[in-house]
Amino acid sequence: MKPENLLRHLNGTHPRHPDTPKLREQLKQEAGRGASRNAGRPIHIPKWVVLIVVLITAGVVGGYYLVNQQTSYNVVTWCGVEGTAIHYHPLLVINYNGVQQHLPWDPAQSADIGYLNQAGFTNPKYYCPAGELHLLHTHDGSGIIHVELPQAVSSTPTLGDFFTIWGEPLSAGQVWMFSGQLQATMYNSDSRSSADYSSGPAGLPLYESAAGPQGNAYPIPLAYIFNGAYGTGASSGFYSGEIIWLNVTA
């Protein structure tokens, strides 16, 4: 194999691989020496150079295949960029003794729960690397939850997954910092029906709407997001149609 061909492959396919600069210099030296030799004389490339290029290629192709074929994710521990294959927004409304509570937010940040590596925003057990966020996260204090997955998954994320990422308790007797009797209701705008999850709020599904994996077909009811006082959900004014009421009475 000619060194210039290997060099062209590295530059075009693996320009950012950590071993590429070293290999690039080795191959340039080989190509330079080859140019001064007799044109009919075979050029010898060390086997270790060819082997490393093959391993780099196999690793990149294999990694791409795994990421793009994966259909099972640990929704709680996964970190990465915002997903696009599935992207919808349910609305969470928490009331304590009849008073709605906004979710924690920092207006100076681009995202909050599931992004900021601070207690009260993200479970310290599941902090993400800098610049990455969880599949379930928020962008303000409105109550809009972003469900953003890189690929279709086999199981529906739950409200319990979101609270685990958040690092706050969720049970029949406590929601976040509020203790008391819980009335948990999930409203489905597609079917115009409600379901009670008071005895097991953690199992409440954050379902994909009838509009599809990126379906946010319903205008957000402003009265349920404090008329925008704590943000409007970073959702272009629309949500998936799922409303989750967690009403706690002391």
Score class of each variant (00 low, 15 high):
Gly241Met: 02
Ser171Asn: 09
Pro150Leu: 14
Ser194Glu: 11
Glu168His: 02
Val153Trp: 12
Pro213Phe: 14
Tyr197Asp: 01
Trp176Asn: 05
Gly160His: 12
Trp166Leu: 02
Leu246Gly: 00
Gly233Ala: 07
Leu182Thr: 02
Glu242Trp: 07
Gly228Cys: 07
Leu159Met: 07
Tyr239Asp: 01
Arg192Leu: 08
Glu148Met: 15
Glu168Phe: 01
Val175Ile: 13
Ser240Trp: 09
Asn188Pro: 01
Phe163Ser: 00
Ser154Arg: 15
Pro205Phe: 10
Gly160Glu: 09
Gly241Lys: 00
Thr232Asp: 08
Ala195Pro: 02
Ile165Phe: 02
Pro221Glu: 11
Tyr197Trp: 13
Ser235Met: 04
Pro219Asp: 07
Ala217Pro: 03
Gly173Glu: 09
Gly212Gln: 13
Gln214Val: 14
Ser235Cys: 13
Thr156Asn: 12
Val248Ala: 05
Thr249Leu: 05
Gly200Cys: 05
Glu168Ala: 09
Pro169Ser: 10
Ser199Asp: 10
Thr164Tyr: 03
Ser193Val: 06
Ile243Ala: 06
Ile244Gly: 00
Ala234Tyr: 05
Val248Thr: 03
Ala210Tyr: 13
Trp245Asp: 06
Gly180Ile: 08
Ser198Trp: 06
Leu170Ile: 02
Pro205Ala: 13
Tyr197Ile: 04
Leu149Asn: 02
Gly212Phe: 14
Gly231Lys: 03
Met177Cys: 03
Arg192Val: 08
Ser193His: 14
Ile225Tyr: 02
Thr158Leu: 03
Leu159Pro: 03
Pro221His: 14
Ser155Trp: 14
Gly173Asn: 10
Pro221Met: 11
Ser189Ala: 15
Ala152Thr: 15
Ser193Pro: 01
Leu149Phe: 11
Ser194Ile: 10
Leu182Val: 12
Ser194Arg: 13
Ala217Met: 03
Ser209His: 04
Ser209Tyr: 02
Asp190Val: 13
